[in-house]
């Protein structure tokens, strides 16, 4: 009971995987490559990846297109598990000026999430929480308006605490 779907590897929470050093607010980027680079640099700063991974994230978009823009204004930058990934980690970048990624519906991007994982499981819980967090317009606005990384961490921690309570109570009414 209480086991997460993906087993032990899936348990890192969003707070675990997104340290203060991996949060960059009000970053400037001239184009999508620069925006992904900020997210990559933040993953490097947190120790999740080495610099090569940033290039791999950019190469992913070059080969597969801007499908990583998963929601209006939100890009999920990532590449395959590789030797450049040391452990599962996320980074979060808000751009002072939104940049186009070439996505037909969801451009321009103001929030870039960097994702690194050494396997298919270690980031599952954290990614699920982040998706639920940004799905709500008010929470996403608050995130985009956050003044510092500590505030972002606080918002996420508060959401995670609430999520635990609602999971205990059951999922009824969550959609309403």
């Amino acid at each position: 009971m209480g086991d997460s779907v993906g087993g032990d590897g899936a348990r890192g929470t969003l707070s675990d995987l997104l340290p203060t050093v991996a949060i960059r607010l009000g970053a400037s980027a001239d184009d999508w490559r620069a925006a992904v680079r900020v997210a990559g640099d933040a993953l490097v700063a947190s120790g999740a990846t080495s610099d090569a991974y940033t290039g791999e994230m950019i190469a992913t978009v070059e080969s597969l297109g801007p499908y990583i823009v998963i929601a209006p204004g939100v890009a999920l930058a990532h590449a395959r598990p590789s030797p450049a990934v040391h452990r599962a980690g996320l980074s979060l970048v808000t751009l002072v000026t939104p940049v186009p990624f070439g996505h037909r519906q969801n451009d321009p991007v103001r929030l870039v999430i960097g994702l690194a994982s050494p396997d298919a499981e270690g980031h599952v819980n954290a990614l699920a929480t982040l998706a639920d967090f940004i799905a709500d317009d008010d929470r996403r606005s608050a995130l985009l308006d956050a003044r510092d990384a500590a505030s972002v961490r606080h918002q996420i921690a508060a959401y995670e605490a609430r999520e635990v309570v609602s999971n205990v109570k059951g999922e009824e009414g969550v959609i309403a």
Partner: peptide, 11 residues
């Protein structure tokens, strides 16, 4: 289906 099988596809 997603590009890498671990980011957007997982979502």
């Amino acid at each position: 289906v997603c590009g890498m099988g671990l980011g957007s596809g997982l979502l």
